[in-house]
Design a binder for these strands. Sequence first.
DNA 1: ACAAAAGTGTTTTTGTTACACCCATGT
DNA 2: ACATGGGTGTAACAAAAACACTTTTGT
Lengths: 214, 214
Amino acid sequence: MSGAAHLTLTTDVVPFAIHGERLEVLLARQAADWRLPGGPIAAGEELDAAARRYLAAQTGLNDVYLEQLYTFAQPKRHAGQRMVTVAYFALVSTDFPSDDGAPADRQAHWIAVNELPAQAPDGAEIVALAHRRLASKLAYSTIALQLMTEHFTLSELQAVHETILGETLDKRNFRKRILALDCIEQTGALERRRGHRPARLFRAKRPGQVDFIK
Amino acid sequence: MSGAAHLTLTTDVVPFAIHGERLEVLLARQAADWRLPGGPIAAGEELDAAARRYLAAQTGLNDVYLEQLYTFAQPKRHAGQRMVTVAYFALVSTDFPSDDGAPADRQAHWIAVNELPAQAPDGAEIVALAHRRLASKLAYSTIALQLMTEHFTLSELQAVHETILGETLDKRNFRKRILALDCIEQTGALERRRGHRPARLFRAKRPGQVDFIK
DNA sequence: ACAAAAGTGTTTTTGTTACACCCATGT
DNA sequence: ACATGGGTGTAACAAAAACACTTTTGT
């Protein structure tokens, strides 16, 4: 009746960010290769606390949006040792450094979701599942705001949606829809970039909070 | 670094069925009181296999639709022993016996979701979460068919939707929508009940399979 | 003949999609 | 003056909601 024999409970986190029209995942160095951040859950620790702890320790990420994805059991991975993984995904704002330091020194680095290396067991499947979940949530929540910096333009927000969905959206329809959600407001400031009209900056009305639609 | 100390991994299952316009949950006897079916996962066992095993052993249910819901950790439940629960919900067809035998003898019994007893830790929350998930899936999948008997009338299917959603639906709009999904077909037979026109019987085109919409 | 649930279309309203031009800036 | 992305409204279409009467059976 005891299911506890040689059981290791771990978390894996899929940390997403958008960098230059690409959806990327932050991988952590583990021995020779790159893996999703994560590791065993400590005694008395909450699951999401463990996920946050490994994110911080292995990648330096803090204060991200975190959501439980799915729980996987690998019935017998290596000799007697059994592993159960609670998978999470995290959304990281675009201004978190995309990659710093020399490639060899980094303890973590971003890689595009469609260029994942042969990786941790099930790593690619977990990422694919997280990607699907994220894409479907765009339709009925304000979750994309968790990927934005504090201030952002509507075109930037649209580009985030387009990157996740893998399709282009109509500018006027997108703006109509987003503004109707009443989830963002103008800051009053403008973002000026060379060579064209400055864009209005917006911010989330309820930063950190994900609202559902309808 | 070892998260395995005194860790018990368990499953809990929320088995739903519709009985007479009520959404009910099947509880299993555990010592003095009634609990969601479930228990510790055996070594080398898949998570959903454990859920099915406990359902069968504690309630007699077999071959139900099963879906993972969420994973909960109770950081320290009783003295050192830690419990992590992978929650599932199950959908049971209406013809599974609603309750048989004398109340005192039963090893399991159905109870309406809005009349749950003070129960297992988090029992009511797990049921509520499962109920919300089920209700939202009605909008974009054919999941409700998993609650039906092999043959059923459109009015019965509509009643199942109404019971889960807690609101009445328009008969013509409901039929238009369901038939457009191309998930059910007429059997040719009629169900005749006293006192009114007989109803056409339908069956699922792909029983056991849940299709998604759009 | 009456009660009770089954069955059936059309109109109205709402939301979604498609679409093209002017604006403000930097060079 | 030109290149670049920012910003804006309307018409067509599709989907969802509202709505009432006839049919078939049992009593």
